[in-house]
C-alpha cells in the first residue's frame, strides 16, 4: 500500500472525504492545506478541460482542477456552493474543485485496500486505494497523479 506517508500496519490515518461526480473520494488529511468556497478563477489558455484556471491564495498563484472532469466523471459547473480543497503534494500547491466535503474519516492503515486492478479508466489511474465506509466505500486520491508537472508535463 503506497500511501504517501507509508504508515505502519496499525497506524490510524485520517482522511477528508468529499464528493465529486457523485462518487465519494478522500485525501489524506496531512496533504490538505485548507478548504475554501468556490470563487471565480482566471482562465488559462491552452489548458485541458479539467483545468479551471488559477486563483490567488494569499499571493500565491494556485491552479484549480475540476476533479470530476479529471477523473472522467463529467465537468462540474462551479457555483457558490461548490468547494475548493487546497492540497499540497511534492512541493506544489493545487486546488481541487469538488461538489462537497463530507467528513473526516479515521481508519486503521490496514483497512485501506489496494485499488482493484481495473484498466483503462481515468478514475482508476488516479486512485491509490479504497476504504470501506458505512454506506459503501471511498476512494483514496493519488494527488501525484493530479498535479500537472508529475503527470502530464506542461498542460
Amino acid at each position: 500500500m503506497a500511501s504517501p506517508s507509508e504508515p505502519s500496519e496499525n497506524e490510524v490515518i485520517e482522511f477528508v472525504t468529499f464528493v465529486a461526480g457523485e462518487q465519494s473520494f478522500c485525501i489524506e488529511i496531512t496533504q490538505i492545506r485548507e478548504i475554501r468556497r468556490w470563487s471565480p478563477v482566471t482562465l488559462l489558455p491552452h489548458a485541458p478541460d479539467h483545468v479551471l484556471g488559477v486563483m490567488n491564495l494569499r499571493g500565491a498563484v494556485i491552479p484549480i482542477f475540476d476533479l470530476a472532469a479529471k477523473l472522467g466523471l463529467g465537468r462540474i459547473t462551479p457555483t457558490e456552493r461548490h468547494v475548493i480543497i487546497i492540497a499540497a503534494v511534492s512541493g506544489q500547491t493545487i486546488g481541487l474543485l469538488v461538489d462537497s466535503v463530507s467528513e473526516i474519516l479515521s481508519v486503521r492503515s490496514d483497512s485501506v485496500q489496494e485499488a482493484p486492478n481495473v484498466r483503462g479508466d481515468d478514475t482508476t489511474s488516479c486512485v491509490l486505494g479504497v476504504v470501506p465506509v458505512e454506506d459503501g466505500m471511498t476512494r483514496v486520491i493519488d494527488l501525484r497523479r493530479i498535479v500537472p508537472n508529475a503527470t502530464e508535463g506542461a498542460a
Partner: peptide, 14 residues
C-alpha cells in the same frame, strides 16, 4: 511577477 511554473507549468504565450 508570479511564476506559473511552480504550481502549474508553462503556458505558451504566457
Amino acid at each position: 511577477i508570479k511564476s506559473l511554473e511552480g504550481n502549474y507549468g508553462h503556458i505558451p504565450g504566457v
